[in-house]
Write a protein that binds this DNA or RNA. Structure first.
Lengths: 313, 313
DNA sequence: CTGTTAGCGCTTTCAC
DNA sequence: GTGAAAGCGCTAACAG
């Protein structure tokens, strides 16, 4: 494969001149430019991008840390990131972590090694201390509440949203409210649990561990959740809510009279199934994440969540 | 940021020696190795991966061309690719094409520029001629029928599968069979249409354009499909089938007596909703794609599709 | 306008 | 065991 020197020789000019025409610099005479272009065409020349990366110290690659790409939730976020990346001529490096710290560290490491120019954390398990440490090596942004931390973020105040949902449900006369979380640990789960406990305390009720459902992630998880009878359910994903609804249909369990459901995200499936849900503009957030991490400005930005009342409450 | 020269100086050795300890080569005395390690620790040294890429001519990055990552179908395939990539210490570069030729060309270009070591095409719109041209620059594999082409592939014979589904449906006594496709063009759509027309011809019926539904991709697309009354439906995605089913429930349209549904993929949602579907092991295919492209061996491999009989026929 | 030249940071012969 | 030195392919002062 021809390199810049070959082209220079073939065109009878210096490598500088070749470099200039490659990069569209001015001050190259038309005939030399033509000669270079001809030589490039003749040899099917393509410049070695890795050499460019080396000398420039950047790669036009943005890392995206994501637990599992098959979850529609993250699919929507990454979709937004990808849309925006396209415009800026950036490519995405997908790091699927499965919430393993070791994988997350790899993503952070890529930033340190300058293999990626910036890192977008869609969700993580590692401690903020670690993320902060790596933030020294390049821009990092997280889609997770990083208030009080030295890391930029676009976040949802899950305490506030959960409290709002709980209040809404109870205002509609529902008691024995159960809730589903995708996982036990993590910032958002902690915030939600706190909201739930505070809500209970306020209304003088005691906490019942049977009301909490962990690892509720996919549509199919609706199945085992319905088994445990609640009168209302707070679900952190429309996918799961849809699965629950499907099972209710099967079992002729009336919604919302026997079981009320509120969920989060407002994914398309929630619209079709008329699920009452809190809208979270995931794809738009993806776009924002990309734009914001590229500016390299530090900052925390809260995304408000908006109740969409439909037929499940 | 310290480089290899700094480490060499600090440790009082040559860069060669430093390089040796970095890469775990033998023939380095214990004390020198210790000195180097100490210097690396002291300076928080990390080698510049781009320099390595330049000299080695490879990047440990694998390109993944995908139309839209938010579609669960592709999410599942990419999940499999990511799992396997992890084991081989490869990272994925996601190129979301939205079926635009220009984007697809960019992905192909990355291979030519050696920014990625190999390319996995999950689905494409570009002509095979173009793909074949770029196959000269590095390993390419496609999850699309490439028989007769100079590109490796793992594929599903959509003609065969569609014919099987049609035969099954008609064997169950269904007439006026409609079918949904994700898009109008593309190898698989062409194969399916051909099967449908051949099937019609064989049973002496004529083709009715009203029986074809294009752009049926997401759950929510089920809505407008139900509007046009069929007695049975061949759906190329469980997501859409689920959406159709949801609308049938809403409208009290009995399935399968009033409308029979067969779909493809056997995604988890199909199991929960008891949808009769043809199983396609998407995640496993993802893993295979990765493994196969890494071997660099040319070959076409058909993935058989298996009918899972449930309650929608 | 054009070319010379000094790197970017690392790997790898090759000779000692 | 060790190190000098020659690149990998490209960019960007700098000098003309």
């Amino acid at each position: 494969m021809a390199n810049i020197k070959d082209i220079a020789k073939l065109a009878g000019v210096s490598v500088t001149t070749v470099s200039r025409v490659i990069n569209g610099h001015p001050y190259v005479s038309d005939d030399k430019r033509a000669a270079v272009l001809r030589a490039m065409k003749a040899t099917n020349y393509e410049r070695n991008i890795n050499a460019v990366h080396l000398i420039k110290g950047k790669t036009n690659l943005i890392g995206v840390m994501v637990p599992s790409i098959k979850r529609p939730y993250f699919g929507l976020v990454v979709e937004g990131i990808a849309e925006e990346a396209l415009k800026g001529n950036y490519k995405l490096v997908l790091i699927q972590t499965n919430y393993e710290e070791e994988r997350e560290l790899e993503a952070l490491m890529m930033l340190k090694l300058k293999q990626i120019d910036a890192l977008i954390i869609c969700s993580k398990i590692s401690d903020w201390d670690i993320v902060e440490e790596y933030a020294a090596y390049g821009p990092i942004i997280a889609f997770e509440d990083a208030r009080g931390r030295n890391v930029s973020s676009i976040y949802i105040d899950h305490y506030k949203s959960f409290m709002e949902a709980l209040t809404y449900l109870s205002g509609k006369g529902h008691r024995k409210i159960g809730y589903c979380l995708a996982r036990k640990s993590g910032t958002s789960s902690r915030q939600r649990e706190a909201a739930y406990r505070d809500f209970l305390k306020r209304s003088g009720e005691s906490f019942d561990p049977d009301c909490v459902f962990y690892d509720a992630i996919h549509f199919e998880d609706g199945e085992w959740i319905v088994e445990r009878l609640m009168t209302s359910l707070l679900v952190t994903s429309d996918q799961v809510a849809a699965g629950i609804l499907a099972c209710c249909n099967e079992q002729n369990l009336q919604v919302p009279s026997k079981l009320a459901i509120v969920s989060f995200d407002n994914q398309p499936i929630a619209k079709v199934l008329n699920i009452t849900t809190f809208a979270i503009p995931l794809t738009e957030i993806g776009r924002d994440l990309f734009r914001k991490v590229m500016t390299r400005e530090f900052g925390q930005q809260e995304i408000p969540v908006k109740l969409i009342e439909r037929l499940t409450v």
